[in-house]
Amino acid sequence: MTSLNEFLFIAFPYIAIVVFFVGTIYRYKSTPYKVSSLSSQFLEGKKVFWGIVPFHFGIIIIFLGHLLVFLFPDDVLRWNSNPLRLILHEGIGFTFGISVFLGLTILMLRRWFNPRLKMVTNRMDVAIEVIILLQIILGLWIALGYRWGSSWFAADLSPYLWSIFKLNPQIDAVSALPVVIKLHIVGAFLIFLLIPFTRLVHFLVAPFHYIWRRYQVVMWNWDKDQVRKPETAWQVTRPKNN
């Protein structure tokens, strides 16, 4: 048991970090234009809104929440020291957690039942979706069943994560936590490890400038309806762009 804990909470995080950096740099070097994820909005534009918006806003808030508790544990403990503020904090986090869960579920169902999307789905897309879904379920389970995560994360997991980065891992506390929480921690490092092999790399190249960019106008200089008519196919203009 001790050696398993040492592998999962000492060796595995370092493996994940090394593979993440080496793999991401390698992917960026060898196939730079593939450091992104295939947009499927072209193929299905209606349901995607109800999945992608709740999922992404939720995951950004949840990720930043975890990151802030890791970076500033003492300030989080100060905020949480009032029970009402603690409950507000947890309630907001849980709300976004539920929206992430619903969003990803909608996205997965959409991908599964739409033949057009199935064509552009690869095995790693499915694998990472399932892993993230399990990770979200574990997170919600922890938030409900092992309250209050935001406080004990600051008290116990923050020092653990810092000890990893200070190259002096302290795993006594982590080893004593319930197995659900352990799985969530291992899942986090697993997802981190898989980033360079999956569509998740797109978060490293998020196009923030799109927010301020002006609309681009895309024009065709031919009549698409005319081009597509079966009677006159290929005669008016050769179709170049769907």
Binding site: F49, W50, V53, P54, F57, G58, I87, E90, G91, I92, F94, T95, F96, G97, I98, S99, L102, A143, L144, G145, R147
Partner: peptide
Amino acid sequence: GTGLLLSGIIGAFILFGFY
């Protein structure tokens, strides 16, 4: 616990409406 679950579900639907 029940309070947290309910507030999360209600909050998520409010978020969907907001989006």
